[in-house]
Write a protein that binds this DNA or RNA. Structure first.
Lengths: 137, 137
DNA sequence: CTGTATCCTTAGGGATACTG
DNA sequence: CAGTATCCCTAAGGATACAG
């Protein structure tokens, strides 16, 4: 609950979300942090969707500004940073899981680990907890 | 589960979602259908965010193409249409609820009915079922 | 009023060069 | 390799005119 005083088009929560990650790239960066364990600049560049380097820099920057991502110097390599999700970013997990489930159910081409929907249908909260614990280690 | 053969940047489910509603306006139209009971063209035009008429037409069209929204002649007024969510559209409800909850928890300015978070915290599935039943009447 | 079409500006973003 | 900066084109979209 922070007072981020950029001027939004409205005070609707859906609009807040849209203004935070409603574009063609931001959610993919969040996905990479959340589900693919990516942490370094080059990791994100290497994703299937081929984000270009200027866009990546811009989105990481905006996510940091919005408190979704943190950027810390890599203790093992002074010349690079480790990007990771803040608590605010991690809190997007349930939404990301629901979005994933929707896509898997409505797009025949989508590829996702086989057991995702099994777990989702059997015990959604358990699935979310499982991913959550992965994020915290 | 339909084979929509537009060429996606990848077969990732998050990317599928991004390509379906990852822009500044689409999710607001879905919100209006899902939570605000809007059905007519003019209803959408009247939202707080002031969508312009060409963009609205474009988004309704794309949503229809993607099977999220249906467009049917209004039986009580031949010169207009009724827009509504398809089953695929309604299936976005859990995701929309999670996104809303995230925004409410992370944006102090967001305004939402007081009891939303109470219900969400007490019985999330019940909250979703409640909205679902509203959509089906 | 419901929707479509056009005009024109700005923002998004691809390619790529460049710095440490 | 990590990240920044520039160049330039295309797509997003605001304003508004127009048709039924």
């Amino acid at each position: 609950m922070t007072d981020n005083s950029k001027d939004l088009r409205s005070n609707c929560p859906i609009n807040f979300a849209v203004e935070t990650f409603g574009d063609k790239w931001t959610l993919l960066v969040i996905r990479d942090l959340m589900f693919k364990g990516k942490r370094y600049y080059g990791d994100f560049l290497a994703s299937d969707e081929k984000i270009s380097t200027n866009i990546l820099a811009d989105r990481l920057q905006k996510l940091e500004t919005n408190g979704v991502v943190s950027k810390l110097p890599d203790p093992e390599n002074g010349s690079k940073y480790i990007y990771s999700l803040t608590e605010k970013g991690k809190a997007l997990l349930p939404a990301m899981v629901e979005v994933t489930a929707w896509s898997v159910q409505h797009d025949s081409l989508t590829n996702t680990p086989d057991d995702f929907m099994r777990f989702y249908n059997a015990d959604k909260n358990g699935l979310i907890e499982m991913f959550k614990s992965k994020l915290d280690n």
